[in-house]
Amino acid sequence: MHRERAEKERIDINQAALKANEEVAMRNRHRFLNDNVLVTNIMGAPGSGKTTLLEALIPKLNGIRIAVIEGDVAGDADSQRIRRLGIVAYQINTYGACHLLAYQVEHAYEHILEDMKKVPNLVMIENVGNLVCPAEFDLGEAIRVVVYSATEGDDKPQKYPLMFLRSQVVVLNKADISTAAGYDIESLKRSVQTVNPAADVFVVSAKQGTGIDSLAKWFRKRVNLLKKQSYGMKTIGKRTSRKNIQ
């Protein structure tokens, strides 16, 4: 036994390095599907306007039960801003970590259910401001959104390809000041398309409130689809769906 241990032994592992996080993310995803809740992971650089976008978007989604999960290294300024809209918001502080992890979202979702006493239709997760790390960590979301502001320059999709490759929606924010920043919206759009031609691109100014309507429509359509599915579930068997929610 000792002799064996003294020798080198190669053991095949063949698994994702972030398997532990991916397992929790998968658990989250199943749960969100069961609850018919649309969960969105909103990412982007610090200052790209993620919270401002939520402030502009949420009032346009009236009739939809929304909750927000805010991820920041420190402080609760963002969740306070969201609560001013009359929306349930849960703040996660990562204390140094530059991205959210699936287990933090699992925990936050529990708090949201407790606060709302009802399952929400839409959960918006605002990730820690960063174009690199959040792309690597699945949270169990159905939709990934990158907020990409015009002032960041037109080379960001090429510099941070993973973030743009893995997102279904790109919100080009601060369209109102793109010219002043020296970038035109068309070149920013083209830049996104070279990395991810399938992404839905929305040109907005969260601050001015322009372009938000079409983004709101996009979300409403998807939330309504899920709602329809949930009615389908209930006609199949109330007991099953209730059990799933608990």
């Binding site: 032994e9 190669r10 592992i13 063949n14 698994q15 390095a17 398309q193």
Partner: peptide, 21 residues
């Protein structure tokens, strides 16, 4: 064409380990 798909490049995997001296 832009209608293309990734075959590889997103990996972040543990392939194997070596234990012992």
């Amino acid at each position: 064409s832009f209608d293309t798909q990734l075959i590889c490049g997103e990996e972040l995997n543990i392939v194997a380990v070596e234990v012992g001296d």
